[in-house]
């Protein structure tokens, strides 16, 4: 039986925006196809190796994110760099997206270091938090996909030599101005979209699983699932985004 191995980074500290929903989606969509997901948690002070197929880093409270920022570099950054260079998936959501970049500068000027896997940098704004429903048009593996989600962030993220995950159709995106949301290269995805991200975006979930299975050495195409509920939930979320504001 094919198994995908996922490393959940800091499940205790970085899991306040329903992050475990994303992992549940990956697990079930493998199981419904006769495959399995094996999840390993990696907390503070615990070194990881570079053999996982997927690495997941979610969002946390400010204080927890600071603790995690200080820990990522010493215990996990090298393995993450090596693994993603080898084609492993790195999915980084909300605070995790900020830490996947170069870092985060607070309102008080303090600096939280990131690991620089994505060429993005985030600066906290004294302006309003960017909160609300989001719709973006993304392109992954050359295929256009409309994604829906919910964003809630004070940071404004600017992109260097990396392309955004998608173009904002509705919502704020990276900085509320550039029209881009998230950032992606190779099999690394950073995004502010939660909701969580994957239940209502089954096509993205399957794209991630396709990459992960490829990394695990199983290149067979994923058989389609009954996504009627997922598709309807996606449509409802998109219509809510259109209705408000």
């Amino acid at each position: 039986m094919s198994t995908v191995r996922l490393c959940h980074l800091y499940p205790a500290e970085m899991s306040i925006y329903a992050d475990r929903g994303n992992i549940a989606v990956l697990r079930r969509r493998l199981e419904w196809r006769g495959m399995t997901l094996e999840v390993t948690g990696a907390g503070l002070g615990e070194p990881i190796d570079d053999t996982f197929d997927v690495y997941y880093l979610g969002g946390g409270q400010d204080r927890d994110q600071e603790v995690v920022a200080a820990d990522l570099g010493p215990t996990k950054a090298d393995a993450l760099r090596s693994a993603t260079d080898d084609g492993a998936v790195f999915l980084a959501v909300c605070g995790g997206y900020q830490l996947a970049g170069h870092g985060y500068t607070g309102v008080d000027g303090s600096r939280m270091p990131g690991i620089g896997l994505l060429d993005v940098d985030t600066v906290a704004s004294t302006g309003p938090r960017l909160i609300g429903d989001v719709i973006i048009d993304a392109e992954l593996d050359g295929v256009h996909r409309r994604l829906v989600g919910f964003e809630n962030h004070a940071g404004r993220t600017s992109l260097g030599d990396v392309r955004p995950l998608g173009r904002v159709v509705h919502g704020h995106g990276n900085d509320g101005a550039s029209g881009g949301e998230g950032a992606t290269r190779d099999h690394i995805i950073g995004t502010y979209l939660h909701g969580p991200l994957l239940p209502k975006n089954p096509a993205l979930a399957d794209a991630v699983l396709g990459w992960a299975l490829g990394h695990a050495g199983h290149d067979a195409a994923l058989e389609p699932l009954d996504d009627a509920l997922e598709t309807r939930a996606h449509a409802v979320a998109a219509s809510r985004a259109g209705v408000r504001r």
Binding site: G21, A24, P199, K200, D226, L229, E230, A233, A237
Partner: peptide, 23 residues
């Protein structure tokens, strides 16, 4: 409710068979 399908997905991904969730 407004987001009935989100709630349906929550139970389906928890492991309840789809046919047992009525929306």
């Amino acid at each position: 409710g407004d987001r009935a399908h989100d709630m349906a997905l929550r139970f389906v991904y928890a492991g309840l068979p789809r046919e047992r969730v009525r929306v």
